[in-house]
């Protein structure tokens, strides 16, 4: 594997995982793309009786996940999703990984092809702290959850919430649900305007489905 498409940030408190797991109907079939060591898969398999599969690019991540008894394969979202047939999963999840893919649009399109629903969580590059680091610090943002320097980051396709909505519209997908988490990991509950989410949401979670052809 030559690229780092699945290197997600090290996560101590992955509130988004709890949030995502709550969105999955029990008994469904799930593919977690970039599953790391399989935290979410374990949550789903144990708690919700889900047929949970994973893909992960890092050898160490896969080995640890398989040792936990999870069905995880070593692979790359940018190249391997194409091998899956249509409609084999109820949900395809991409948590904190889209920013590390080479071709986010293609990855998202494949997710919507092989799954009935796609769930995507990502760090919002439009968050006020990131904006202020760039504006006042004059350097690429470094935060607790985005701890890489510009020259060693696997994250090559950052986007803001507004950018992501733009991609969703471009590929003609339908937003079923959208949530944002503030920097304390709390859900921003109210249906506030986009600009508010885009400024105060540190992470976003979207549930998408295919638009009409």
């Amino acid at each position: 594997m030559s690229n780092a498409a699945f290197l997600s940030e090290p996560h101590q408190s992955r509130v988004d995982l709890m949030l995502i797991s709550g969105m999955i109907e029990p008994g469904s079939r799930v593919l977690d793309v970039g599953c790391g060591e399989g935290e979410l898969l374990k949550l789903l398999a144990d708690g919700r009786n889900v047929d949970a599969r994973g893909i992960e690019i890092s050898r160490e991540g896969v080995a640890k996940a398989v040792a936990k008894g999870l069905a995880v394969i070593q692979g790359d979202a940018d190249t391997d999703l194409a091998d899956y047939p249509d409609d084999v999963f109820d949900y395809v999840i991409l948590s904190q990984t889209i920013q590390a893919t080479r071709n986010p649009r293609q990855v998202l399109e494949h997710m919507l092809r092989i799954g009935r629903r796609a769930i995507v969580s990502f760090p919002n590059f439009g968050h006020w702290r990131i904006r202020s680091q760039l504006m006042f610090g004059g350097h690429m943002p470094l935060t607790e959850t985005l701890s890489y320097s510009w020259w060693n980051t696997p994250n090559i396709h950052f986007c803001t919430i507004r950018d992501f909505v733009g991609l969703v519209d471009t590929i003609g997908a339908i937003q079923e649900r959208a949530s944002a988490l503030d920097s304390n990991g709390r859900l921003i509950r109210f249906r506030l305007p986009w600009w508010f989410w885009n400024l105060f949401g540190e992470q976003a979670v979207f549930v998408l489905k295919r638009g009409r052809e």
């Binding site: 050898r59 896969v62 995880v72 394969i73 070593q74 091998d83």
Partner: peptide, 15 residues
């Protein structure tokens, strides 16, 4: 592994 996935099998794979 690709073939097993295409067949819908539950598969773990590690190199």
């Amino acid at each position: 592994v690709h073939a097993l996935n295409a067949g819908g099998a539950s598969v773990s794979f590690v190199e």
